[in-house]
């Protein structure tokens, strides 16, 4: 039963080898989906290319459904999976800062690594700046710390917060996704294509 490392079925050394292969698959999938191109990525904000939205929403949906089913069938202990903790304030403000970064830089950290890997200088510059940004954060961390820890809701799930069952949430999410795919396709056809 999974998670394999949690139940000690994989040793630490093999875990690192697996990390390498998982990373390779992650990088390969992103690059092959066109995420090494900033101009393709920002297309989602101007309506000429919705690849980011399609890949992101499809991946989220597939993962949510797959993990729920695996838990349901007893192949994975759903309760021990790491749920990203919710700190309302920092999650929102951090996201807003990243939104600024996305529209100005044209990448996010994962996609900039992919771009850097295939020789895009803008990706390399973004990645170096990412290092600097983390360093800057470490300098200002003492000032930000109180806000960093504000609004701690623990490892709360969106379904607990909304008060709906996981099944109904996924069902609703899937319908929203299909509608979103349909509407964005109509928008893309209306917008002047951008060649890059």
């Amino acid at each position: 039963m999974g998670p394999l490392t949690y139940f000690g079925e994989i040793s630490t050394e093999w875990n690192y080898v697996i990390a390498l292969f998982i990373g390779m698959a992650f990088g390969y999938i992103m690059e092959a989906s066109g995420f090494s191109s900033s101009r393709k990525l920002v297309g989602v904000f101007y309506g000429y290319d919705f690849a980011v939205l399609r890949v992101f929403v499809t991946a989220t949906l597939v993962a949510i459904i797959g993990l729920l089913y695996m838990g349901y069938f007893g192949w994975i202990d759903y309760e021990v999976l790491f749920v990203h903790p919710t700190f309302v304030f920092s999650a929102a403000i951090g996201g807003i800062i990243m939104g600024f970064g996305f529209i100005t830089g044209g990448f996010c950290p994962g996609t900039s690594l992919c771009a850097a890997a295939i020789g895009k200088i803008d990706g390399i510059v973004f990645t170096i700046a990412l290092f600097v940004g983390i360093m800057v954060y470490s300098w200002i961390y003492p000032i930000l710390e109180p806000w960093y820890n504000t609004g701690n809701l623990g490892h709360i799930k969106i379904t607990e917060w909304l008060g709906v069952s996981e099944g109904w949430f996924v069902f609703g999410f899937a319908i929203i996704a299909v509608v979103l795919f349909y509407i964005t396709n109509l928008i893309r056809k209306k917008i002047k294509p951008v060649h890059y």
């Binding site: 900033s38 990203h84 903790p85 700190f87 920092s90 999650a91 403000i93 951090g94 996201g95 807003i96 800062i97 990243m98 600024f100 970064g101 996305f102 529209i103 100005t104 830089g105 044209g106 990448f107 996010c108 950290p109 900039s112 803008d122 990706g123 510059v125 973004f126 990645t127 170096i128 700046a129 990412l130 290092f131 600097v132 940004g133 983390i134 360093m135 800057v136 954060y137 470490s138 200002i140 961390y141 930000l144 960093y148």
Partner: peptide, 17 residues
């Protein structure tokens, strides 16, 4: 602008965990 974006993402990602 790529540098500006990277810098902001570095700070934002640490703040948002």
């Amino acid at each position: 602008w790529a540098a500006v974006g990277g810098l902001l993402f570095g700070i934002g990602s640490q703040f948002a965990r």
